[in-house]
């Protein structure tokens, strides 16, 4: 897990949550460069891409990954 003194925005953890439409979504929480944590919500397709880009087989494996891994979804 990223330490509080990390300056680069990094993933703190990711949890499954219900979406508005009844589908499960993945809420990825990130610690920003100022130490504050917020979240971005990924749908099933985007979450799958992020997991693959991070070579993660579960949300736990996303911990500590740099935020730039999320950019993988932009590159398709």
């Amino acid at each position: 897990m990223a330490s509080p003194e990390t300056t680069e925005t990094a993933i703190v953890d990711a949890v499954v949550s219900p979406g508005h439409d009844g589908q499960a979504v993945l809420v990825v929480r990130l610690r920003h460069e100022n130490g504050v944590v917020d979240a971005v919500t990924l749908d099933a397709v985007t979450a799958e891409k992020v997991l693959e880009a991070c070579n993660a087989d579960s949300p736990d494996a996303l911990r500590g990954q740099p935020w730039t891994r999320l950019l993988a979804v932009m590159d398709d």
Partner: peptide, 9 residues
């Protein structure tokens, strides 16, 4: 945030 006690912010 659950599981993040003490995290700055």
């Amino acid at each position: 945030l659950p599981g993040l006690d003490g995290v700055p912010g």
